[in-house]
Structures are given as C-alpha cells and as structure tokens.
Design a protein around this nucleic acid. Sequence first.
DNA 1: CATGAATGAGTTTTCATTCAT
DNA 2: CATGAATGAAAACTCATTCAT
Lengths: 206, 206, 206, 206
Amino acid sequence: MNLAASPLSKAEQRAHVQRTRILDAARTCFAERGFHAASIGAIAEAAGMSQGLIYRYFTNKAAIVHAIVDEQRQGRHEALAGIASCHALVDLVMGKLERWRARSGTFDREFDPILFLEITTEATRDADVAAVLYDSEQSVWCDLSDVIRRDALASGKALDEAQVQQRTVALRCLVDGAILNWIRDPSMDLQQLRRSLIAVCDTLLT
Amino acid sequence: MNLAASPLSKAEQRAHVQRTRILDAARTCFAERGFHAASIGAIAEAAGMSQGLIYRYFTNKAAIVHAIVDEQRQGRHEALAGIASCHALVDLVMGKLERWRARSGTFDREFDPILFLEITTEATRDADVAAVLYDSEQSVWCDLSDVIRRDALASGKALDEAQVQQRTVALRCLVDGAILNWIRDPSMDLQQLRRSLIAVCDTLLT
Amino acid sequence: MNLAASPLSKAEQRAHVQRTRILDAARTCFAERGFHAASIGAIAEAAGMSQGLIYRYFTNKAAIVHAIVDEQRQGRHEALAGIASCHALVDLVMGKLERWRARSGTFDREFDPILFLEITTEATRDADVAAVLYDSEQSVWCDLSDVIRRDALASGKALDEAQVQQRTVALRCLVDGAILNWIRDPSMDLQQLRRSLIAVCDTLLT
Amino acid sequence: MNLAASPLSKAEQRAHVQRTRILDAARTCFAERGFHAASIGAIAEAAGMSQGLIYRYFTNKAAIVHAIVDEQRQGRHEALAGIASCHALVDLVMGKLERWRARSGTFDREFDPILFLEITTEATRDADVAAVLYDSEQSVWCDLSDVIRRDALASGKALDEAQVQQRTVALRCLVDGAILNWIRDPSMDLQQLRRSLIAVCDTLLT
DNA sequence: CATGAATGAGTTTTCATTCAT
DNA sequence: CATGAATGAAAACTCATTCAT
C-alpha cells in the first residue's frame, strides 16, 4: 500500500509505529471490556506507554475508536478481496470463529467478531462511527456481490443483476447472523454451523 | 392479566407499577446510550423519580439490566409463539424494523432490535447476562424449529430431524443477520430486504 | 424511680415501651457498627418497626444517641451504688467483660464496654454527648469515692480527703484502662488481668 | 533522615511528600470528625488537593486509615523507646495531654490520644485495624515491661518475672485510663492527675 | 398510631483530559 | 518526544428525614 514513491520520514515512521502500538492495545481492551468500560489508563498500560502520550497520537478516546473501526473496515475489505466462492467465505468466517475461541485474549487486526459487534452497537450512538460503518457496508456489499459473481462464473451459471443482489443479501445476513449466534451461544457446535451454512449456500446457488 | 384469583395488595401493585416505570425508562436510556453510558441519574429522570427511589425497587444497576434482558427473552418467546410459517416470521421481524424507524425513541417492551444487540454485546462481559441470554437462545431455538415444522406441515412436506435442524440454523442466522445489517446500514431498502428473505425462505423450503 | 404517685396513662406506657424497643435495637446496632455506620433503617429493622415510627419517639438519630448515653450513665451509676469495696468493683467489671465475650451480639442496658468506648469517642465531636458524659463522670467520681471510703471503713483505715481523691483517681484509671486494653487485645488473659487489678488495689489501700 | 546511601528518585520523593500531606490532613480530619464522618472530600480540601489525587497515593479510604494506624503504632513504639522510668512515662503522657489542649486542632504524627481512641473503636469493626492494633499492643507491652525493669534496676530492686508482668499490667491500665478520663472530663485538673499517677507508681514499686 | 414510599444531599471512587517538567 | 501528576466532572450507591395514606 505504501509505495516506494512516498518516503516516510523517520518521525512519520515512528508516529506510525506508535499509533499501531496504541491501536493494538486498544483493540484488546475494547474487545475485553467494551468501548466505554475500557479506560485510557488500561490502554496505556497495555501499550506500555504513559496516558499522556496517547494524546499525542490521538486527540480523543473517540478518535481511537474511529481508527479501530476504520482498521476493521479495511481488514474486512482486504480479507474479502481474496475470496472467490461462497464456500471460501464460509471457511474464512468459520476459521476466524474457531481460532478466536482457541487463543482467547488476542484479537485480530483485520477482523474481530466481538469488536464487530461492539462497533455495530456503538454506531447506534456515535454518528462518526455510524458513518465509517456505513462506508464499510457499501464496500462489503460490493465485495460480496463480487464473490457471488465469481462463484457463479466458476460454476458456469449466469446470474442477472437482480439475482446477484438477492443472493448477496442472503449471504450477508447468513454470515453476520452466524457470527451473532456464535456470540450468543458459545456452546454452539461450529462444525454443524459450518455444514448448515455450506448447505444453504449450495441450495441458494442452484 | 390480573384475574380475581390473584389478590395483589395495594403495595404490591404499586411496586409493580414503579418497577414498570423504571424498566420503561431504562429500556429507553439503554437503547439510546448503551448499558454503560446510561446513568442511573438519566434513568431516574426519564422515569420521573429520584435516583434513590430506584434502589428501592432494584438492588443494582445490574439488576435493572438483568430484568430487561429477561423481559426481552420473554417477549421474544411470546412473539414467536404465534408464528406459524417462515413468511409470518419474516413479516413479524420486518414489521418491527419498519415500525422502529417510524417512531424512533420509543422502545418495545417485548422485543427491541437495538436492545437485542446491546444485550448480546453485554453478554460478552457479564456472566449473568450471558446465562439469561443462553437460556433465551435455547428457547428461541425450539420456537424456530417449531415454526419450521409447522411450515413444512402446512405445505405438505415431510422433514426429518436433521433437515429441521439445518433449516432452523439457516433461518435463525438469516433473521439475526437481517437485523444486524439493518442497524449497520439504516438507509437499506427494507422492502427489498423483505423480498430477499422471503425468496431465500422459499428456496430453502423447496 | 417512678413512684405510685405518678399514674402513667396507657399512651405514656406505650410510648415508654416503644422507646425501650428502639433503644434496645439501637444499642445493638451502635455497638456492632458504630454510631455513624448504624443506619436508622438497620435500627428500625432490629426493632421490628418502620423507619418512620422511630421519628415519633425520637426527633433525631442524635436524640437516640443521647438517650443511650444517658441510659448508660444511669446504668453505671446504679451498678456502682451496690458496690462496697474495690474487690467488688473489680469483680463487677471483670464479670462484665467475661460475660460480654460469652454472648457476643447482645448488649447490656446498664453498661456495655464497647458502647462506653463509642460514646467517649463521640463526646469528642458532639457537644451534647460530651455534656451528658461530663455529668456522668462527676457522678461516677462520687460513686467511686464512696466505694473507696466504704472499703477503708470496713478495713478499719482512716483516710483523709486527699488520700481518698488520690485513690479514686487511681481506681478510675485502672478500671477504665483495663476495659480499654481488653478491647485492644481480645486475646488477653482475663483471669490474670483480674489478679493484677486486685493486687494493685490491695497495694494501694495498704 | 535521608542519608546519602538512600538514593530516592525525585518521583519517590514527591510521592512521599504527597503521602505525608494526605496523612497529615487525614489525621486532623479523623481526629476532628472520626474515621467514618471524615469524608475524602474533607481530607482533600485539608490537604489542598483534589479528591481524585488522593487515590493516586492510597487505593482506598481504608488504606489511609491503615496507614495512620500504623504510623501511630510506630510513633508510640519510638516514644516509649527513650523512656527509662515510670516517672518519665507519666511525664511523657501528661506532657502530651497538656500540649494537646494548648494547640487544639493540630495533631501528633507520633501519638495522638484522640486518634488512639478512634483507632481502638475502629478495631472493634475493621479486622485489619484490629490486626495492626494487636501487633502494636504486643510491642507496647514489651516496651512497658522494659520500662518497669529499667526502673527497678535503677532503684536497686530485684523483680521476678511475675512481678514485672503484674506491674506492667497496672502501669498500662493506669496510663490508658488516664487518657480516657482526660477525654471524658476535659475540665480535669491535669496537675492533680499527674501527682496521683506518680504516687501510684511510687507505691506500686515499693 | 403506624407505614414505607419518596427525596435530595452526601459518600466513595473512576476517568478522560491537560500540562509542567 | 515522553511522562505521570493533577484536575474536575461524573458515576453508583446510601441514608437521614419527611409525609401522604
């Protein structure tokens, strides 16, 4: 993303490193305790720096939240870019959920289900978060539509635009709903969930 | 609701009225600001009473949260009891979303999508909330399976148990995902969403 | 104290009974938690009545405290009236301490060591308590001087007034100090303490 | 006090100064109003700082109380270390009482009679305070026994251990009782009290 | 006479944010 | 650039006291 053409000064590099350290710490704290309950003090400690320093890189606690929301948006977009079929999408998401349960406590820079929920909730109240999230949704929408199209292409089906839209909606709801249900029922059998999703995808694309 | 057989004393009636007043206020505040950001002071003001009085009816702020979570669980269960087909379910949910947008600011004693999200997020951190939510999920699971069975019965299909389970998973994810997406993209065309859901339901049940 | 000449009306009797109930409850609560930490609510519950009713019999929380201080003053005076020798005094006090440890939780209407301490501390801050306590001290002073005189008389010694005063001071300090030390070191051997006090009394009166 | 060997960082020095400021303020407030009635707000104001800052140096209000109790324990121990005779002990205590009355409002970092009482009362309810106080008592017990022994040695008397114990008990009760009585009767003639105590000491050691 | 619902001021404690060093 | 001491506003919760019933 950062081509050779843009020579980052040492100061800029340092700033970027610091911002990353803060965001990594914040992601963990936010996912653990929520945007509100996670204090700047906790983030500073997790980042191994003083509270004051955080304010050199982010004007606000809100600014940190915004940055993380954006980070997740980008991550989600990049993750979807490499996906060529519905099956692959289901695999990606289910893999995330499985890995999440394994190494609890560490969180994913590109896409974290708990943060995803936290962000959605926050969007209800914070207009800025809502705006970023809205953009994210548009982008995800396109990405998912592309997945549908690629999948159809690969299996030799021709879909008109209306069919693409409809299947995109369905796919989106399925995946998001799967995440939500996984959170609401941690004892859920992930293998069975995966099989069900696959089955629905197959049915929908027939 | 209050048959002659249940002799509620005046004190008990009063207590019930007050609890209801508090819960109504709290539901609004929680949906508007979230469980954490909504202060007891704000709830008290919304309920038109002093902060101290709230503590006569609820030992804790947490107790209020728990009461509301339970209220929503019950409401969700009751709402599903009357549903006989997937179409009816989609209608119920979409109706909620449409009505919600119309009279923003008022919240639903039986089931509110924003609160639903807030509760799911809170369950990540509060073990008590998680427990109530888990129970709720089991109950919803049964209710949805019944919907699937009734639907199949009405349309003369015979489904084995594995098929019922699979369709229940799909239905559940679809509906929850629809709510989530509606929250994330408020500009979404609800009519189109409704049509897509109906189409998926029809496809899945064929 | 209440001679036949004063016919108490039924209302007055009831009032007296109620006041007694409240004071009994308050004594327990105060000794358990201290004047400040003991709430009117706790006292009301211990007395088996409503909070409001307490205010029919006492204008204030402070009034309850004052009543109890006075009660203890009177009890102390009456307890000393029957004492004819230093040995008897030591026995009285040590008996109190021993019994106190045995049935912890119940408190003595006539004199309770913990309340005694609590009251002394409170006198530091509340002028009314200080006044009652001051009166109490004058009265106790006379009572103790009489004990000294009776003791000397019984053992055939003649003491001039200065000697009486001096021994009274000593006796008073010894007894109060014994109580204080017993509170500060609950593991203290009461039998040994008793023997030491007796020995000092004997020495002092030789 | 701060020899060259102890390299306190500037931060540590500052922390120590602040803790001292807080403890000084707290001692005053506690002695004036009691542990419970003295609010953190009052302490902060007396210390000339914000309420929040107090929590940087003490985790709790209880922590402040504990620190003060410990401070007094140490002070009491150090004060007794330099005492070689019963007369000197009486002089020390009476001097404290006289000085206390003179400059009311200021309290003694090493040993304050009102705080001593407050602490004893609190020990009745706070297990931690009770524990520190118990340790203090053991230490004072040894210190007083040593005073008795030194005194006997100086006056050429030989005391067996039982006699030492007995006199220690007596001395302890006398001194504590004197403080208690001085509090309960502020009009008391301190000169007379001093003479009486001296007389008893002389009698006891004959 | 008795209740207990209601209030409002007060308590301890936390935290985002600033700023002197 | 970095620190962490300091602040002030707010949070949850308690409690003495009043008053309608």
